[in-house]
Every structure is written in C-alpha cells, then in structure tokens.
C-alpha cells in the first residue's frame, strides 16, 4: 500500500497543481452551479467530456501493461460511431429506444471484433503491436468512411443524444459510464489474478511462459478490452456530436490516451500498471486542455503544450536524469553514470 501511494504521489500532485493554477488564473474555473437539480460548471464539464478519453485510456493501460500499444483506438471509435449513427439513420424510427439500444450494442460488438483482430495479430501471429495496430489505424478510418458513404451523417435521436448529454440524478450520464467502466475493469483485474498475470507477462514474457502462464490469452484479452472500450468511447463521441465524422472522431486520441497512461505512472515498457493512475492522468490531460483554453490559446495550438508535457514527463522518468539527481545530491561526477544500466543487468 505504501508503494502504491508512492507511485501515485507525483501524478496526483501534478493534477492538483494544475487545478489550483486554473482556479487562481480564473476563479470561475471551480464554480459549480445547480440548475433544475443538475450540476453545471467547468469541473462537471471535465468529468463529462473526459468519458471517451477515459475509456480509451483504460484499455490502453491494459495493453501497455502487456508491453504492447494500441494505435487503432481512434479508428475503432470512428468505426463504432459510424456504425451506431448509420443504424439509427437507416432505421424507420430513429427516436425509439429500441433502435438506439440495437445501434449501441452493434457498435460495441464491432469494437470487440476489431479488438479481437488486433489481439490475434499480436498474440497469435506475433506481429509487433505498433505495426499490428497500425494496420487498423490506417484501414479503420477508410472503413468508417465507407460505412458513412464518405459523408458526415447527422441524425436526430433523442435517446441517443441522451447518452452523452443526459443527466442521471445530478451528474452527467457519461460520467457514470466511465466510472462504471473503471470499476468493472478494476474488479476484473484486481479481484481476479488477471492483473498480476498481465503484469507478469508484460515484465518478462519468457519467464511467464515457462512458469506456465497462458500469455497468449492474457495479451489477447487486453486488446479485446481495448477494442470494446474504444467502441463505447466511439458511441459516446458520436452521441456528443450527433454526427458520424469518420475523419475527426477520435483523431489523435490514441496519443492523448498514451500520454494519460504515462502521466499516471504506468511505464511504456510494460509491467506494473495503475488504473487509478490512469484516471488521474486523464483528468490531468483534460484539465490541461481547459487551462490552455483559459489562457486564450487557440485549441489548435494546444499540441505545443502537450509536447512540452510529454518531454517533461519522459525526462522525469529517464534514468540519466535520475542519475543527475543522485549525482547532484552526492556531488559526484557523472562520467560513469550512463553505464549504470549495463551494470544493473549484470548484477541482477
């Protein structure tokens, strides 16, 4: 437990700092108002709008834990959103709950199938994850465009719109969806042995195999989870815009999701992962986006800030920087430091 707290300390501190800075810069930031028994305000918007990224980042956490990466999540979102909206658009009764339920289920199943495909390429065929998912990342948007016939399908369906913008009691539905997803995934990983076995496979695949771990199924399950969660994210995104835009749905979300996972303290080298960390990471990304907006920076220029964040985060994780920190502490030369890695390997 002490270790866990330690792992999440810096991510949480970063998030809190960001929120405090936001609030100081603009006191309106933290204001929450109540209208018709429902909460509104920036914090609530963040909670609602983070749903797609949260779902995608959750799946990404599991995939990264297996030493993999899933670049296709954005494309899967585009496909699932296109599927859902096309089904609603084609149905004679777009406003009925039945239609919407069918559309959502089919869309999520499509996400699942695409996840199965990715997992197959990685765990059975043995293709590098970056490349295996690159295939779908390239082809997926093409498929989404074919589904929508190359146009931006807009629909009018109150029940469907409710998914992203509706409220349950006092908070947005979308918020409950991602909280439910976080709870389900956490239970699945930590109440069973899936989490530990996933970490084991991610840290040392060969040792895990020789210990009898069925790594193929575990790796595959991570990609399937990622596909399903991206499918749900696509449904929410489409419900938010009510337009199936195959080009912009989930655009760059894979990169933001990876960033959120890394911000949450999960290493890209695989192994130990933290779902709580990912939640913090996603919140940080969302809060950063809001902060940039508040600073009056056009959203298009936001990537510069994200670039800076990425660089800072990876530098903080870099062994050389740690070595510098230690060296500064002990006032020792840094000449021999770059080779500390080799030494650890041998000594282990």
């Amino acid at each position: 437990m002490r270790i866990l707290r330690h792992r999440l300390f810096w991510p949480a501190a970063a998030l809190v700092t960001l929120l405090v800075v936001n609030t100081i810069a603009n006191p309106n930031f933290a204001r929450i108002t109540i209208r018709d028994g429902q909460l509104y305000g920036n914090p609530i918007t963040i909670l609602r709008d983070s749903a797609p990224l949260m779902l995608v980042a959750l799946g990404m956490t599991l995939v990264i834990a297996t030493r993999g990466i899933d670049l296709s999540v954005g494309a899967i979102m585009a496909v699932s959103g296109a599927v859902a909206l096309t089904i609603i658009d084609d149905s004679p009764n777009p406003g009925s709950v039945g239609t919407v339920v069918v559309a959502v289920i089919v869309a999520v199943v499509v996400g699942l199938v695409l996840g199965v495909w990715n997992g197959f390429l990685v765990s059975v065929i043995g293709i590098q994850p970056i490349i295996a998912t690159l295939v779908l990342m390239l082809a997926g948007r093409g498929v989404a465009l074919l589904i929508t016939g190359g146009e931006i399908t807009t629909v009018n369906s109150a029940p469907y719109k409710f998914i992203a913008s509706g409220y349950l009691i006092i908070l947005p539905i979308a918020f409950f969806i991602w909280v439910a997803a976080v709870v389900v995934v956490s239970m699945l990983e930590r109440r069973t042995a899936l989490g530990m076995l996933t970490e084991s496979v991610g840290i040392n695949p060969e040792a895990s195999r020789l210990a009898g771990v069925r790594s193929r199924g575990i790796i595959w399950s991570a990609y399937i989870a990622s596909g399903v969660l991206a499918g749900i994210a696509g449904v929410i995104y489409a419900s938010n815009t009510m337009a199936a835009d195959a080009n912009s749905a989930g655009y760059l979300i894979e990169l933001y999701a990876i960033l959120a996972v890394v911000l949450g303290g999960t290493s890209l080298m695989g192994g130990k992962f933290s779902i709580a960390g990912t939640v913090i990471g996603v919140m940080t990304v969302q809060a950063l986006e809001k902060a940039i907006l508040f600073l009056g920076v056009p959203p298009a220029q936001a990537p510069v800030f994200f670039a800076v964040v990425v660089v800072v985060v990876v530098l903080l994780q870099a062994p050389r920087v740690h070595a510098w920190g230690r060296a500064a502490g002990r006032r020792m030369g840094v000449g021999a430091k770059p080779r500390t890695d080799d030494r650890k390997e041998v000594a282990a």
Partner: peptide, 18 residues
C-alpha cells in the same frame, strides 16, 4: 535520455503540429 523512439517522436509530432 533512453526515451522510446515512439514517445520521443510523438512529442515531435505534437510540437510540430502545434
């Protein structure tokens, strides 16, 4: 800094686009 090429160039992607 031992950053994976994927991540380092991702920073480059964000930077260039921004």
């Amino acid at each position: 800094f031992n950053v994976q090429p994927f991540i380092a160039s991702l920073a480059g992607l964000f930077l260039g686009r921004g």
